[in-house]
Design a binder for these strands. Structure first.
Lengths: 227, 227, 227, 227
DNA sequence: TATGAATGAGCATTCATTCAT
DNA sequence: GATGAATGAATGCTCATTCAT
């Protein structure tokens, strides 16, 4: 896929290594100690390079965190894309399974690097740049949800899919944060069950709904009955 | 001047004034500029007192914010208690109204001092003490929700009221944050409608539900059947 | 003159001492090593105080230099005011003496703290704030010159006193800088003589001019003959 | 590619280009942002070369500025030499014209690259090497003035031509700086008129002086009367 | 020659907190 | 209780220069 850039980039190689060392060290420190508490000096020392090298590679601390987030984002997206495509190729997925899968994915997304996630969430509340970043992530989530429920579109009880997807996205994330970050006072299973019920009841009639004739995207599925 | 050493505690009075000035100044600054950005020096200056006085009254900056939060919390609770008691004294509240009222209260709570709220939320993500504080608030919210829906208890579709209340609490707060803090990409009305639907459908059967025989608190309502 | 502020300001006293220590140390360092080369740390150490104390007393390094300049300025002005008043109270000052005195004053002004003066001049070329400061000093100089020659006003050959005073001010300063800072390649005496000639010839006819009937300021002196 | 090792020095040609690119970029940056504010990295980037290349061609930043100055100096000198030779070939130049021309030349010299000039002047006040450079320029100016007035030598009122030329040089430069850099509070025309008067009156008797029989350099012109 | 990654001392400034008065 | 001067470690970031490739 990527174009073969010839033999090699000897100089780039060292630079690349340094860059990776910095990113690795910073990821750990940001996750462990938080963004503000982690100084550029600490990062450099942990990465085994000079502070100057840090600033050769990143214009500032914030950009570094952005880069780290970008990578995680990419990784998470790939992971999810795979799962989702799997769902779509599976015959006979009922709406219960779908909802459950949605929550499972969100949990997976979160366990990828929970501390980093927490840190980024905190920053979104105080820094406009991180807020913007959070907003973009949210859009992705909404898109994903929309796509996920699209084949069931005709079976949905709801009118305003856009608003609904957004509300679901927020709710799922909030519940997961509550569980994973703040330590909810109730067992996880009970909470995710409740969350699943909430979403499913919102979208579908009481009984489970099954898409009989699966077809790829965008296609109009026949009304699959529904009590 | 201020000779009146009468019966009371003249010194304590002055101390009280100082304390109040500090709290007032800090509330404004924390809301406007955030906790980390606001230095003790700034607070003291804005309050018109010496930095030393600040530390005479509060062991550190954090304690001050705790105190501020405690006060707001109290104020908000009183405000809500009043509203809720009003609901309970009203005959013939249907479940739709109830749900709508829940969201309305949450919005009101948030508009009380949105920036302070935002700041506290951010801190909850990074500081264990603030996280604990957030957890306590959450418990209150859950209690409120439980209490609110108690008269409908027998009409509810759900089994695990505890988990449900918690999920609702998280979802409502998240949606409001999304709207008020992060600027949701959809109009507020559509989002609160979706949120209301979600909660209502989760709790009640499709049709609206009305509590016929209202009774004061905690009282055992007659079994009103239930599918 | 100054109001008696009562007994004393015990706290202020210590602060005042610290402030003076900082100013003294900074004056020396700025003069010796220059503004940019002198770090706040160095100043603090030389003054025997903590860096923090430096910033308790001055918002930044630049302000400190401004304060130092202000003080020197005041000192120099007082010195000159005294000299000038002496000239004005002396009967029978001829124009030669006046010109010579002008140059002498300028030299005195400069020897007050030559290195600091040099540093400030350099900064005036690169920093707008210092340029503004230099401009203010220049205005003072022009005012002084105007005032000095005012009693001879009717004897002056020149038309545009404002422009002339400004040109003289610049020239005198430049010549002195050339001598004191850059080390002119000709003996000082010859240069100041040439400078004196230049100014005198510009202002007066060839022969020396004497104000016969001295009178205080602004007053119209009788034409003291002169072709 | 670039095999052509023909007769010439292909490598040296490339080197020359690199050098020129660096000089061009640096000239602009030094003028615009000042010497201290312009980093070697910025220069290299603006020149489109690597930082290393910079240090291949110049031992340090300072040397680069020296080189830039040398070039400007040469250019300015050539420009002036031409103008001056023109004056000398013109019959019947009176002393007024000469003085005016002197100032005009100085202004021209300054408008050649005013910001660079300003920067160099500032550095002359703080760095011995640049001070030495300034001193050399000054000598050139003095030489020029001496040469310019040489044909009128016998008509001059002054005794000490060396000191006079130096004083004139300093004054002219100071006035121009005042106008061009610091923004004099009086219109330029009035100031240059005053400056011209000052210089003319210093050198010549009140009336204008005309060299009747022009002859090339060093020649003894007949006394053109004057007490 | 050209490259550009690496270096690390250095800088201006901040800030929570203490404590003598 | 009130005051506010003093503290000094810590922070994010810069920059002239070197040197292996």
């Amino acid at each position: 896929m990527l174009k073969d850039k010839g033999r090699a980039q000897p100089k780039q190689k060292r630079a690349e290594e340094t860059r990776e060392k910095i990113i690795a060290a910073a990821t750990e420190l940001f996750s462990k100690d938080g963004f503000h508490t982690t100084s550029s000096k600490k990062i450099a020392k942990a990465a085994g390079v000079a502070v100057g090298s840090f600033y050769n590679h990143f214009p500032d601390k914030k950009s570094l965190l952005f880069e780290i987030h970008r990578r995680h984002s990419t990784a998470v997206h790939e992971m999810i894309a795979e799962k989702v495509s799997h769902i779509f190729t599976t015959e006979d997925v009922d709406s219960r399974i779908l909802t459950r899968e949605l929550i499972r994915q969100a949990l997976a997304m979160h366990s990828f690097s929970p501390d980093l996630h927490r840190e980024l969430t905190a920053l979104a509340y105080t820094d406009p740049d991180f807020a913007a970043m959070a907003r973009r992530d949210e859009e992705d989530a909404v898109l994903l949800i929309t796509k996920l429920f699209d084949p069931w579109r005709d079976a949905l009880r709801i009118v305003d899919l856009e608003a609904t997807a957004w509300v679901i996205s927020q709710s799922v994330e909030a519940v997961i944060h509550g569980i994973k970050i703040f330590g909810a006072p109730v067992e996880e299973q009970r909470l995710t069950d409740a969350l699943g019920d909430m979403i499913h009841r919102m979208l579908f009639a009481d009984t489970e709904t099954r898409v009989k004739e699966r077809s790829r995207k965008r296609q109009s599925s026949k009304r699959s009955g529904n009590a």
